[in-house]
Design a protein around this nucleic acid. Structure first.
Lengths: 340, 340
DNA sequence: TTGTACGCGTTATCAT
DNA sequence: ATGATAACGCGTACAA
């Protein structure tokens, strides 16, 4: 209820200056032991709390960092944020969350907004594609450090933390080949994001390097949701020669496909194998459990935070930029375990 | 790279005062059309952005609000946050996230910290129980509005948004009775949180009001995780007269139970019915799909945000406090659909 | 060791 | 319609 006490209140109480109070509170050596203790005591008694806003304005450091994601309540993103917060909170940072809803105009506004709020850095999983990256460029040219995670853009002087999408896709496809699958289809999210292109590439190269052909009909462009996955599966199974496996670039679309396949007289994994991407929690608990490529999102968040911290430290001297690529780990479950 | 431009820079450029610039930027009527346009133009040209920190210090409003949860990356909490952000971002607020890791000391520190950062309000799902609520009391007595969501404490003058845990539990139990289940067990999370007590109460009353007895052995106290659920199921099934249904106060523990039951020659739902609580995404995709009580987390977040906004508006006049109770909706799926 | 004075960027209250 | 000045709360260079 009562007004917040400031260092001036303490100063008045003790008949000294605010400067002295400030020094006492900040362990400044230029102060007598006596007054320091007196100030500390009085501060505690008057329930003084530092106003971080004033400090921020003065120092130019808000100790806030912005995290920008499409949606918070997707396991992948919330887990990344979990990692970021775990890493940054102990260092005295607060994490400000914003969701773009995959809306690019909104994303740009959010960035401006965070910049206006004087955040010390922005960690972002963008919805922009490399083709449109120039729209984001002016904002990125500020002195505030940016770090891309998962969905990055190719800017030479901006740090990023991603997983090895190519390798993950390659491993998944190779695994299906090793299981004896002969006609492996792929769900390809065609929203222009680089990571889906990399997954497509990993899929193709795994096929080629094992002596398989890349069949265009087996590559289905779609949106990242369950309904699209059902449609895609239907399309595939109506082909003259249907595939006997799917490597999907997302778990959600694969879920739709599995639902569709379970309506057919087809047994997974004996007749048909599937592998997804993201290792969403539900893949573990489905029947059959679904193999998927894990993106270790919490780790990714921690790493993005670490890169940010390094960048802050190096601010004075030369600016450091990093392109961190985390490994993608294939988690093999029942849905692709034909051979015992 | 270049230093941020302030209203003083614009003032100097135009040979006028910062005050005039400020007026032009804020649509203050006390300014000529000419100068306003000139200022706006120059501001745009010089790429001026308002420093919200300075505004915050001056106005005493940071336009940040803190959201405190045990963990961000639990579907329930991330969905609540989703709702909060959806509601508050359009009003110009930024959402600051902190996780307590269910650590009470940490929770208290987080609150102090957010208060120091001058947040305009705190939305919190606490890990404290009503027995320990006095520890939190000093922080709550500040002028900054607090709003509890889901995990609340009983303070008469603090708002809260919860669901009707009692009713949800009652409905779930009644539903099992209607399915013909005769011996319904209950998983009870015994961490002292009020909402679990309410669920237990709903369970008991549903039984009693249908003429069933409450069998103490059928009420298993446990932690909210899968392993505990497996253990609990084992205990139950080793009883002289095992139950034929479980109403669990959490989906996670129920998941463990289902895993255990599936190792037995027992068919769900024909021999055994189960209903969970929270409607976690995986419940929908499991085989069999799991019935669960939905807590409409996004709605809860939106509502908590709305209550906060109302409270802000009413600040000047009389302080408004609200106890909002959202309905709990039982979602019936295969795991409890014995009768066709 | 302590006090004085200023600046961080903004808005609001007086004057003019 | 515009200018001058104070104030928000803090830290710090400089002076004493």
């Amino acid at each position: 209820m009562s007004k917040k006490t400031t260092i001036y209140d303490i100063a008045k109480e003790l008949q000294i200056t605010a400067a002295t109070v400030s020094r006492a509170l900040n362990n400044n050596p230029r102060i007598s032991k006596n007054t320091r203790e007196l100030v500390l005591e009085t501060a505690a008694r008057m329930n003084y709390k530092q106003n971080r806003l004033a400090l921020a304005l003065k120092s130019g450091k808000s100790n806030n960092i912005g995290v920008v994601v499409p949606y918070i309540n997707r396991n992948f993103f919330s887990s990344v944020i979990r990692g970021v917060e775990d890493e940054l909170y102990p260092k005295g940072y607060h994490v400000i969350i914003s969701q773009t809803h995959e809306d690019k105009d909104r994303e740009l506004k959010i960035i401006q907004n965070l910049l206006n709020a004087q955040v010390d850095g922005i960690l972002i999983s963008t919805s922009y594609t490399n083709e449109e990256k120039n729209k984001l460029e002016p904002a990125l040219k500020k002195s505030t450090p940016f770090i891309f995670f998962d969905r990055k853009l190719d800017f030479p002087d901006i740090s990023s933390v991603t997983i090895d999408d190519y390798q993950g896709a390659y491993d998944a496809t190779k695994h299906l080949i090793d299981q004896g699958c002969k006609r492996i289809a792929h769900f390809y999210v065609n929203n222009g994001l680089e990571l889906y292109k990399n997954r497509l590439l990993g899929y193709k190269n795994a096929l080629l390097q094992s002596g398989f052909e890349v069949v265009p009909e087996y590559i289905i462009p779609l949106k990242n949701d369950m309904e699209a996955g059902m449609e895609a599966a239907k399309t595939l199974m109506n082909l003259p020669v249907p595939p006997d496996a799917i490597f999907s670039s997302t778990d959600n679309s694969l879920l739709g496909a599995v639902k569709y396949l379970q309506g057919l007289p087809i047994h997974i994994p004996d007749d048909f194998c599937v592998v997804g991407f993201s290792n969403e929690p539900f893949t573990e608990f489905m029947e059959p459990s679904i193999s998927s490529v894990d993106q270790s999102p919490v780790e990714m968040g921690r790493m993005a935070a670490k890169v940010f911290l390094e960048q802050m430290d190096s601010e004075q001297s030369v600016k450091i930029h990093k392109k961190v690529i985390l490994p993608a780990k294939l988690v093999i479950r029942k849905s692709s375990s034909k051979i015992q």
